[in-house]
């Protein structure tokens, strides 16, 4: 049966197998055959590769004590201060006497420099698909609020649709209203991720404990001037269904903030920046801001640090 015989020989230091045809599975019943130099085991028509068939020790196939070969479920902690800045003065109200349209003399602070701060941080702890998100934003004397406005969110995030985190959780917001602090809890539900054209987008809806519904959309985009000098464009918009005067919220589309910040990444994690931010509140919200002595339209120079770890 030359068709199934195999001759092994050494030629120029390499094993040259001659005469082996592509055996079909149907021929697997062929017994082992002797060739000129060695025994060829014909097992399921497989040629002998000289490796033998060493028995596997019992218990080898599954051993629960063994570790995982890879650590692909590691948890990570991420904290990003996207905005951490000082904003010296509102360029649009530098002359308080020009701001007479409201006729509201409670704008006594207009005479002063009214510096403000703003932070916007977020972070998560978790793995690839499930994360615990935390976010906090705080600002003072913005186009949206005469005095301080601080919130904190704790959300569960689930990775969805290749680019997005679905988020749900709670938010606590504290503001001032007539020199007194007011606090409320809200339910947060939303989505965050990277949309086409490389914009980071966060869209959240909030339901306050009294049922008032509001929403916020934030969008940022990085443009690289050089590898380390980066322009960040930022847009934040707020809207609400019900009017909630204690939280300076009118109904409808009520606020827009546009920012342009130029940062220099000394390290990826550490980037001082300068920028400008333009904020404007509309309709009922603008009236509420003016009533509390704030500027519903603000243009501010900002200087800060973008940090993450």
């Amino acid at each position: 049966m030359p068709r199934h015989a195999r001759v092994h020989g050494w030629l120029l230091g390499t094993l040259i197998a001659l005469g082996g045809t592509d055996a079909q599975a149907g021929h697997s019943a062929q017994p082992a055959e002797l060739s000129a130099s060695r025994v060829v085991v014909s097992r399921k028509a497989a040629p002998d590769t000289g490796r033998g068939n060493r028995p596997i020790p019992p218990g080898y196939w599954s051993n629960p004590d063994w570790p995982s070969p890879v650590d692909d479920e590691a948890q990570h902690l991420f904290l990003l201060f996207d905005i951490l800045e000082y904003r010296p003065t509102n360029l649009l109200s530098s002359n308080p006497h020009s701001m007479t349209q409201s006729g509201n003399d409670s704008n006594a602070g207009g005479e002063n420099e009214n510096p403000s701060y703003w932070w916007d941080m977020e972070g998560w702890y978790g793995g690839d698909y499930n994360r615990l998100w935390f976010k906090s934003e705080g600002q003072q004397d913005s186009a949206f609020k005469a005095d301080y406005d601080i919130d904190f969110q704790l959300l569960y995030g689930r990775f969805l649709q290749k680019y997005y985190d679905f988020q749900i959780g709670g938010r606590v917001e504290a503001q001032t209203y007539r020199q007194a602090s007011v606090v409320r809890g809200l339910l947060t539900i939303g989505i965050q991720g990277l949309v086409p054209y490389d914009y980071d987008v966060e869209a959240l809806a909030f339901v306050a404990q009294n049922g008032a519904v509001s929403a916020r959309v934030t969008m940022t985009k990085d443009l690289l001037l050089t590898q380390q000098l980066i322009v960040q464009l930022r847009m934040e918009a707020n809207a609400a269904i019900q009017k909630v005067p204690e939280f300076t919220t009118g109904s409808g589309f009520n606020e827009l903030e546009l920012g342009l910040r130029i940062r220099y990444e000394f390290w990826r994690e550490f980037a001082p920046y300068v920028g400008v931010s333009y904020g404007k509140s509309f309709g009922e919200t603008a009236t509420l801001v003016r009533d509390q002595g704030g500027d519903p339209e603000q243009l501010r120079v900002a200087t800060g640090i973008r940090l993450w770890f």
């Binding site: 094993l15 040259i16 197998a17 001659l18 592509d22 055996a23 497989a46 590769t49």
Partner: peptide, 12 residues
């Protein structure tokens, strides 16, 4: 390969 392959079956 310098040497011909030992196993020349078409993959099943």
């Amino acid at each position: 390969s310098l040497a011909p392959n030992i196993d020349r079956r078409e993959p099943s």
